[in-house]
Design a protein around this nucleic acid. Structure first.
Length: 925
DNA sequence: CTGCTAGCATA
DNA sequence: GTATGCTAGCAGA
């Protein structure tokens, strides 16, 4: 049976406008109604498969109802300007989606819908009226029903009766009796839905009620008798006209209401103008496919030319190309140097690499550089080799000066493998590397975050080439020599190969990224821009008060000695408190304490959980717990951090690794500044040592409940979305739902339970895990989870859908299209598979959060530069950004920073960032 | 000197 | 129950 879908455009216009908070295009044009409307259209298109479709709007001007009753809708305020300006783009969007638009002068949208619905019913066509307008209930019959796509309410004949206690054919009478304040149609005073339904149940119809008006008692009965003259007019006003002449609009009848071809180009244009990023990405994929017909793979002389030869789907792993003939040379004369400067100046893209004497990017000194502009052809320029044969090497300073313009030119595009490192190395020499167009490390990471991304592995995987390993030429371990000690022939073979392979990798990987709009967006608009911000943050470094940490080390040291003495007495012998093995022997062999759990290798565990449990009954574990936590703080933080201060800058410069975390998160190392303590008072003292220089403050801004908000967005769960929209304490709100109490009745115990389940959900929880966390039985945890899923069915469904999608595709995606691969999801090992399923649940949330804060970092950095501010980004800790801000800029940054963070994307729930200020990180947090 | 384990710091 | 990085201890070079 054929189906007709009629969208009540006028009703959704207002609903979308009021349902969504402020939202506007970059130029300030409001876009909330457009966003809501398009969202609704997409949802409808996905959910409802109709043969015929129309979106109906009110036309301008008066209607026949104004002639009947001049006060009709007289009290309705004019359409707000903010909505009015969105009408044209909304019509444009509807049309571009391929949905026919109907606007008939002299009648309202309802009348057009009524007419079409009646015509459809007569032909046996099912009609779905998508509207939120209760008046339309009068149109429901055996063929026509209402589906409200916002509330997902469905009203068929029985549904109408269930809702209003009258049948659809009585709705007109019912509306006439109760009137419509919005449209300024009076009814019978004091007659509401209850009374109207009661009368209609008793007398069947308005006519019959009028006929029996004298029999109705009370004030309402008198009111009825007073309005008898009016009621027929009221009925006429609320009756939807079902005989509108549509012959000139639809000469071919329903055939004129078929879906048209989607106009992706217009949609892309529209979404770009209003900055609907997710949809832009979606459309870019479609437009790209349509605009780029497949071309045969050709041979180009310029291998790094701008246009990819062929769009290879990202899913298809590349087939290693045929061996490339290599020609590498060593630049050791001014003629060769001139030749290569010409080459790289003319090239549209140069693969570039540096060789240095250290892995520490802030300390590393340049030893040489290599270049390649064509597959198989590359050159190595040695600059600081020394050793037995320090031969034909061009002079360091002079050669670098010749290359500096090219290195610092944004017009000369470079591609490299981890150019952030090379950028540091050159910055150490006062050279500001520019024109960084591509990075094969990031390409590999975006295409396949679960693979290895080092150049040797990439070369083998993507090109089928075996490369010279660093260790092959420099040795390893203590006997390793610096690259400057390597002879020039060997160095050339190695370094030129690096540039050559990098260029060829870029040429292979870029088309695969471009073939997928989502991945390309993640690479081009998230990873490449945040690469630059990370460089800036690493370069900035953070000021650390070494004296303060040293004093803390000293104090902790004294306390540790006390604790050791106590432990020796309690144990009856001295032993190494830091050795789990010795500790185990004392605990379980000598003192015969009970074994609570075992390590994976089978030894009795002595971790914090076990110690806490044992501490309830024995004194020694308590001493151990304090010793453990203090020695961790001392060895990892208070002892180490002062040693990490860079002598030249006086600051600590971490390395942000952009390509290790499979979820898209960053990691920090040397030192890791993403795990500075915060939970315990002793730990927080370490944060106090991260300080702002004189005249500055530390400003910290963190996203509030970012992963739960993303869960609300991804699952679309109405209750969860509502809780965030209302700005509630989310754990409390969860508790209220799950325990069925009001918000102010939630006990702290209930809130704690809810908090655990919220975190558990983010981690792909099982009943077992939750039980352990809450120290309750597994059965109790299970019923608790069931109650949660009952209250938040959208979340339950999302979990299942995600698991299934991961099993199907082998990966899951973030909101921005980042792919998170889960090779273990198809493992025959049950435990591994279960682990991968938990990761599949967690990854979209953790990964989307990572995408968001990367976008925020880029936006904040961009703002700081555009406004020429001196404030500096220093650190990122997954959901937190830390800046150093001069006092003069404090108010501005305090206001703008959280605003930027909250507005990098528009999700189904608002984003919130909270800002703090202090002399040090602890105060600011 | 290198690689592994247990344990623990963060989001 | 997700994702990381670092330390000390220890075993086998």
């Amino acid at each position: 049976m054929a189906t007709l879908l009629l969208i009540d455009g006028s009703s959704y216009l207002y609903r979308a406008f009021h349902a969504i908070r402020e939202l506007s295009a970059p130029d300030g044009t409001p876009s909330n109604a457009l966003f809501g409307f398009v969202n609704m259209l997409k949802k409808l298109r996905q959910q409802t498969h109709a043969d015929y479709i129309a979106c109906v709007f009110d036309a301008k001007g008066k209607t026949f109802r104004d002639d009947i009753y001049p006060q009709y809708k007289a009290q309705r305020p004019p359409m707000p300007d903010e909505l009015r300006v969105q009408i044209a783009p909304i019509h444009q969007a509807v049309a571009a989606f391929g949905i026919p638009i109907l606007m008939i002068e002299g009648v309202e949208a309802d009348d057009v819908i009524g007419t079409l619905a009646r015509q459809a019913s007569a032909q046996g066509i099912t009609t779905i009226m998508s509207t939120g307008d209760k008046d339309m209930s009068q149109l429901v019959d055996d063929y026509a029903r209402i589906e409200n796509s916002m509330t997902e309410e469905v009203l068929d004949r029985d549904g109408v009766f269930a809702k209003f206690n009258v049948w659809p054919e009585q709705i007109v009478d019912y509306l006439a009796l109760i009137g419509d304040t919005v449209d300024n149609v009076p009814g019978v005073p004091k007659c509401g839905p209850k009374t109207a339904a009661k009368w209609l149940a008793e007398f069947g119809s308005l006519d019959n009620i009028i006929a029996n008006a004298d029999a109705i008692k009370g004030v309402v009965g008198q009111n009825l008798r007073d309005t008898l003259q009016w009621l027929p007019t009221a009925k006429e006003l609320v009756t939807i006209k079902c005989d509108v002449d549509l012959s000139s609009e639809l000469p071919n009848g329903f055939d004129d209401l078929k879906y048209q071809t989607e106009d992706s180009a217009t949609l892309l244009q529209l979404f770009t103008r209003f900055n609907f990023r997710t949809w832009v990405r979606e459309m870019e994929g479609k437009v790209g496919q349509a605009a780029k017909p497949e071309t045969p793979k050709g041979i180009t002389s310029d291998l790094f030319g701008d246009e990819p030869n062929e769009a290879i789907p990202a899913e298809v792993s590349s087939i290693p190309a045929a061996p490339v003939e290599r020609h590498y040379e060593c630049i050791n004369t001014s003629e060769l140097l001139a030749k290569w400067i010409d080459k790289i100046s003319a090239a549209s893209m140069t693969a570039f690499d540096t060789e240095t004497d250290s892995l520490d990017q802030m300390q590393a000194r340049l030893v040489g550089m290599s270049f390649s502009v064509q597959a198989g052809e590359a050159a190595y320029l040695p600059l600081a080799h020394h050793g037995a044969d320090t031969p034909e090497q061009l002079p360091f300073d002079d050669t670098l000066a010749q290359l500096k313009p090219w290195l610092e030119s944004a017009d000369h595009k470079k591609v490299g493998q981890n150019l952030k490192y090379d950028q540091h190395v050159l910055a150490n020499l006062g050279i500001n590397l520019a024109g960084i167009a591509d990075d094969t490390l990031l390409m590999s990471y975006v295409l396949a975050s679960h693979e290895k991304h080092n150049m040797d592995d990439q070369a083998a995987r993507e090109l089928g080439e075996t490369t010279i390993k660093y260790e092959d030429i420099c040795g390893k371990g203590a006997k390793q020599i610096g690259f400057a000690e390597v002879d020039l022939d060997t160095a050339t073979a190695y370094a030129a190969e690096d540039a050559d392979i990098t260029g060829r990798l870029a040429h292979t990987l870029l088309p695969r990224l471009q073939a997928n709009a989502g991945l390309h967006y993640v690479y081009r608009d998230i990873e490449m821009p945040s690469r630059q911000v990370l460089y800036v943050m690493e370069r900035n470094g953070i000021l650390v008060d070494a004296n303060k940490l040293n004093r803390q080390s000293h104090d902790i040291g004294l306390r540790l000695i006390e604790l050791e003495q106590q432990a020796y007495e309690l144990a009856g012998q001295p032993f190494n408190l830091g050795s789990p093995k010795q500790l185990g022997e004392i605990f379980f062999d000598k003192l015969k304490l009970p074994v609570i759990k075992k390590t994976p290798k089978g030894a009795p565990s002595t971790d914090e959980e076990v110690l806490s449990e044992l501490a309830k009954d024995y004194p020694l574990p308590k001493v151990l717990l304090e010793h453990r936590s203090l020695s961790k703080l001392k060895s990892t933080y208070t002892d180490k951090l002062p040693l990490m201060i860079n002598a030249a800058t006086g600051r600590v410069h971490t390395s942000f690794n952009q390509t290790v975390a499979v979820t898209g998160r960053l990691s920090s190392s040397d030192p890791n500044l993403q795990n500075i303590p915060v939970r315990t008072p002793e730990g927080r003292k370490i944060r106090e040592a991260f300080i702002a220089p004189a005249g500055c403050k530390i400003v910290s801004a963190d996203y509030s409940q970012i992963e739960l908000r993303i869960m609300a967005h991804l699952s679309g769960d109405a209750a969860l979305i509502r809780a965030f929209e209302q700005g509630l304490d989310i754990h409390k709100a969860t508790a209220a739902e799950v325990f069925g109490v009001s918000l102010d009745e939630v006990t702290s115990e209930q809130r704690r339970y809810a908090k655990s389940i919220n975190f558990g959900l983010i981690y792909g929880m099982s009943a077992f895990g939750l039980a352990a966390q809450l120290e309750i039985t597994r059965e109790a945890a299970k019923t608790f989870i069931e109650r949660y899923f009952n209250r938040f069915p959208g979340v339950a469904e999302y979990m299942e859908v995600t698991r299934a999608a991961a099993r199907d595709a082998g990966y899951v995606e973030t909101v921005f299209g980042r792919r998170l691969w889960l090779p273990a999801i198809k493992s025959s090992n049950g435990a591994q598979r279960a682990g991968a399923e938990r990761a599949a649940i967690n990854a979209p949330m953790q990964g989307t959060a990572a995408d968001l804060i990367k976008l925020a970092m880029v936006a904040v950095n961009h703002w700081l530069i555009a406004e020429k501010l001196s404030s500096r980004l220093l650190l990122q800790v997954h959901d937190e950004l830390i800046l150093e801000v001069p006092e003069a800029e404090l108010d501005l940054v305090k206001a703008k920073l959280p605003e930027i963070m909250a507005s990098v994307a528009t999700l189904k729930v608002p984003l919130l960032a909270e800002v703090g200020v202090g002399e040090n990180w602890e105060e600011a947090h």
